[in-house]
C-alpha cells in the first residue's frame, strides 16, 4: 500500500520535559480520508503541527510521499494544504484579499481564488472584512485557503468548528468530492464522531500521546466488544477503546 504520510516513532515534549507524544507511528494511505480522533489534550494538534512542520526539533521522523519532511519542506508544502486549530485570517482584509495574500506565496493562478471561494460558499462576501465574518464563515475561509493551490494532501484540524449543521453537511460533501474526484488525501481531526463516521475511510485513535488504534473504518467496526450487545457506532467504539486503555 502507498502511504502519503508516515511517521516513525514521533515523539514530542515541552521544555519542562512533560511528554506529549510517545513514539507515534501513523500511516495514512494515499487517497484515504483519515480521521484522527482523540480527547482534548490527547496530542492531536501537536501531531498535526509536526506533520506540517510547524513544530521541529523532535525525535522521530515524518515522511510525506516518501520524502522526509526535514530537508524537503518546500516541495512538500507545495502539495499540502492545511488548517490547524482556528482559521488564520487577516481580519482587516476581505475574503478575496486574504486568498490573494496566500496566492502570491503559492504562486498559483488568479482563477483559483473565485474557485476556492465558490467551493466553500463564500463567493458573495464582496469587500466585507474577514474580521466581521461569523465563526462559520471564518472557518469556511480557512478551508478555502487550504484548498487554494489545489493540494493533493489536506491536513485539517477541527475544520467544522463553528459550522451550523447545514454547513457541516456541505463541507463534508466537499471533502468527499475532493477525495473521490480529485483523489485528494485528507487527514482530519474532529470531536464530532458522528460526523467523522460519515466521512472517513480510515481512523487513527490517539490517547494521552499514544496511538491506540489505526486502520480502516471497517476494521474498527469489526472489533468485537463483549461488553456491548448493541450496534457498534464510532462513538461507542471510541469510548470503549479509550476506557480499555485507561483500565
Amino acid at each position: 500500500m502507498q502511504y502519503c504520510i508516515e511517521t516513525h516513532n514521533l515523539s514530542h515534549s515541552y521544555h519542562s520535559g512533560e511528554g506529549i507524544l510517545h513514539g507515534i507511528n501513523i500511516k495514512v494511505p494515499q487517497g484515504a480520508i483519515y480521521g484522527f480522533l482523540g480527547a482534548n489534550g490527547a496530542g492531536k494538534t501537536t501531531t498535526l503541527k509536526l506533520l506540517t512542520g510547524l513544530l521541529t526539533s523532535t525525535p522521530g521522523a515524518v515522511t510525506v510521499y516518501n520524502q522526509p519532511l526535514r530537508g524537503n519542506r518546500l516541495p512538500i508544502m507545495r502539495q499540502m494544504g492545511s488548517l490547524i486549530e482556528t482559521s488564520s485570517l487577516y481580519s482587516h482584509l476581505s475574503a478575496r484579499e486574504n486568498l490573494e495574500v496566500f496566492r502570491r506565496l503559492y504562486q498559483c493562478p488568479a482563477t483559483n481564488i473565485p474557485e476556492a471561494l465558490a467551493q466553500v460558499g463564500l463567493e458573495n462576501t464582496g469587500s466585507k472584512k474577514a474580521g466581521r465574518f461569523s465563526l462559520g464563515m471564518k472557518q469556511r475561509l480557512g478551508i478555502a485557503i487550504a484548498l487554494l493551490h489545489k493540494p493533493s494532501l489536506l491536513i485539517l484540524d477541527e475544520p467544522t468548528n463553528g459550522l451550523d449543521p447545514q454547513g457541516m453537511i456541505e463541507i463534508r460533501e466537499l471533502f468527499k468530492t475532493l477525495n473521490r474526484e480529485q483523489h485528494v488525501s485528507i487527514v482530519i481531526s474532529s470531536h464530532i464522531l458522528s460526523e467523522m463516521e460519515k466521512l472517513v475511510t480510515h481512523i487513527g485513535i490517539i490517547n494521552k500521546g499514544r496511538l491506540l488504534f489505526q486502520g480502516s473504518l471497517a476494521e474498527l467496526m469489526a472489533i468485537n466488544n463483549p461488553s456491548s450487545n448493541g450496534p457498534h457506532d464510532l462513538e461507542t467504539l471510541f469510548i470503549n477503546l479509550v476506557n480499555t486503555a485507561y483500565a
Binding site: 506540517t52 490547524i84 486549530e85 482556528t86 488564520s88 485570517l89 487577516y90 481580519s91 506565496l105 503559492y106
Partner: peptide, 18 residues
C-alpha cells in the same frame, strides 16, 4: 503584530516559501 493578532504565523509557515 498583524501575524500574532490574526494567528496567521502557522498559515504563513506552511506555505512553500523559505
Amino acid at each position: 503584530q498583524v501575524e500574532f493578532k490574526n494567528n496567521t504565523w502557522k498559515q504563513l509557515h506552511t506555505t512553500p516559501k523559505s
